[in-house]
Computed example of a mutant assay.
Amino acid sequence: MNRHAMIKTFRGLTALFLPLALPLALGACSGGGSPQQTAQRPPLEGAAIGGPFTLVDKTGRAVSWSDFDGKYRIIYFGYSFCPDACPVDVQKMMQGFALFEKAQPQLAAQVQPIFVTIDPARDTPEIVGEFAAAFSPRLLGLTGTQAQIDAAAKSFAIYHAKGKETPGGYLMDHSRTAYLMGRKGEAIAMLPVDKTKEDVAAELAKWVK
């Protein structure tokens, strides 16, 4: 092939492939967008978790889910007589919250941590209040009638049932989930209370804006 024929062939191939190659090249250069440029969607976005309830705090005052509209909410269902799981989970939850509060006090002020008992027969307003206060003055303890608790737990997809009897009294079986809920009461994410307090703080920092 002579020189002129080679040049003509090269120009023809360039004209054919350049429109296809250019977007690929630009895509390779952009890398699909940085993590900061690509908004991450909340893991529980759109999940049918959460709903209205009315319970009572340590003073017997009625507290409704709608009272926290405009604030983020952390909510955990457990019981004060729990010998192991609940204290560990709630401690991790509130230690993580404390780290987040230290780093971002203004944002933390817009978050309400809530503990709801699943054992209202034993967890009176006074007892649930003492339990919550043992972990943080920011943690709000709530109780109510069995029907109110059952309804609230169901709306948050929390399993709970009376378990076996022990010398110290009966135990309760229940889900171990700490939810982060948004300003409108929408589900955002589950906090990793099965990991470290630093992991909990990092998850709060990711979603509370």
Rank of each mutant, 00 (worst) to 15 (best):
T143W: 05
E165C: 09
D194W: 14
A153R: 02
M181I: 08
Y170W: 12
K195A: 09
A178Q: 06
F156E: 01
I149F: 09
T196V: 03
K184L: 12
L180R: 04
T145M: 11
T177N: 10
T166G: 04
G182L: 05
L142W: 05
A151S: 15
S175I: 00
D194K: 11
T177L: 13
A202K: 05
L191S: 05
Q148F: 07
E186V: 10
T143F: 04
S155T: 14
A201T: 04
Q148L: 06
L171A: 06
G168M: 14
Q148M: 06
M172T: 03
G141F: 01
M190T: 14
I188L: 07
I158N: 08
D150E: 15
T166D: 03
Y179W: 08
G185I: 04
A202I: 02
S155G: 12
Y179H: 04
Y170K: 09
V193Q: 06
K154F: 14
D150P: 11
A189W: 10
T177K: 10
L140A: 03
R176H: 14
K197A: 14
L142D: 07
E198Y: 07
A147Q: 15
P192E: 08
H174F: 01
V200R: 00
V200A: 02
V200F: 03
M190D: 13
L171K: 02
P167N: 07
A202F: 02
V193L: 09
K164C: 06
M172D: 02
E198V: 11
L140W: 05
L139Y: 00
G163M: 04
A161D: 13
G185F: 06
A178I: 08
T166L: 09
R176D: 15
G141K: 00
T145E: 13
L171N: 06
D194Y: 14
I188T: 05
Y159Q: 07
T143D: 03
K164E: 13
D194G: 15
D194N: 14
G168C: 11
M190L: 14
M181S: 00
K197N: 14
A157D: 15
A187H: 00
A147W: 11
P167S: 03
D173N: 11
A187M: 02
A201S: 07
R183T: 10
G182T: 07
G182K: 05
G169C: 06
L142F: 11
S155N: 15
L140D: 02
K164T: 12
T166I: 02
Q148W: 09
L139E: 01
A147I: 11
A201D: 02
P192T: 13
H160D: 03
E186C: 04
A157I: 13
A147C: 13
A157S: 15
L171Q: 04
T166M: 08
G144R: 08
A153D: 06
F156I: 02
Q148Y: 06
G169L: 08
A178C: 09
I188D: 00
A152H: 05
Y179A: 06
T145R: 10
I158S: 04
K162Y: 10
G182Q: 05
L171F: 01
M190V: 13
P192V: 12
K197P: 12
E186K: 04
